[in-house]
Amino acid sequence: MRAIGRRAALACLVVVAMATSGCGYTLSGRGNFLPSYIKVIGIPIFANNTSVYDLEQQVTQRVRTEFLGRGRYQVLGVTDGADAVLSGTIAGVSLEPSGFNENNQATRYIVRVQLKVEFKDVKANKVIWENGSLEIVDEYDLSTGTGALDASAFLGQNRAAADRISDTVARRTVSSILEAF
């Protein structure tokens, strides 16, 4: 009986040791690889080189909100007084039909948004992170009664799609900057 009791105690000890020891992995979204002196981030309105009206306003606002949601930074809409600056350009938006009804009319679209984004440490005067070819791709059902001939018309009529794209841009950009991807 004593041997069984010792084995059980040893097994419990091993389980406790394994449970309390770290495996080296952490949850994503928790990292922060920015210099500690970066407290204020300037995020001016992204440039918009597309025909999609107001997309730059929406994307910029979502990126600002995402940084604020991380709780560590003050976010400004200007570059003056910032420790780091995030600048971006929406370089392209394209629309591609991906689903059709019985009349061969498009009912589903793939939307691609191309961006150029740069995050610069103002104090050290160096680029911390950049992506000159960030692409967000998502698929959307066409809203009933809307006729989408181009990306501008589609996103103008389908605000849910524009919201989702903006949220994806914000999450991916901020995560990439903070988690050093």
Rank of each mutant, 00 (worst) to 15 (best):
D121I: 14
V122R: 07
T107Y: 02
K120D: 11
N104F: 11
V113G: 00
L115I: 03
A106N: 01
V122E: 13
K123W: 01
S98C: 04
K120P: 10
A106Q: 00
A106G: 01
F119K: 07
A124E: 12
E118Y: 02
N125C: 07
V117E: 11
R112T: 15
T107E: 08
N125G: 11
Q114E: 13
V127M: 06
F100D: 10
N101V: 14
K126E: 14
D121H: 11
L95W: 04
V113Y: 00
P97F: 03
E96Y: 08
V93N: 06
R108D: 06
V111A: 04
V111P: 04
A106R: 01
L95Q: 05
N104S: 09
E96K: 10
V111R: 04
R108T: 09
V113F: 03
F119P: 07
I110M: 02
V111N: 02
N104H: 09
E102S: 14
T107I: 12
D121C: 13
G92C: 03
T107L: 03
Y109I: 04
A106S: 08
K116D: 09
F119V: 10
V113W: 00
E118F: 03
K123I: 10
R112Y: 12
V111I: 12
F100S: 09
V117M: 09
Q105K: 07
T107K: 02
K126F: 06
L115W: 00
A124I: 02
N104Q: 12
Q114Y: 11
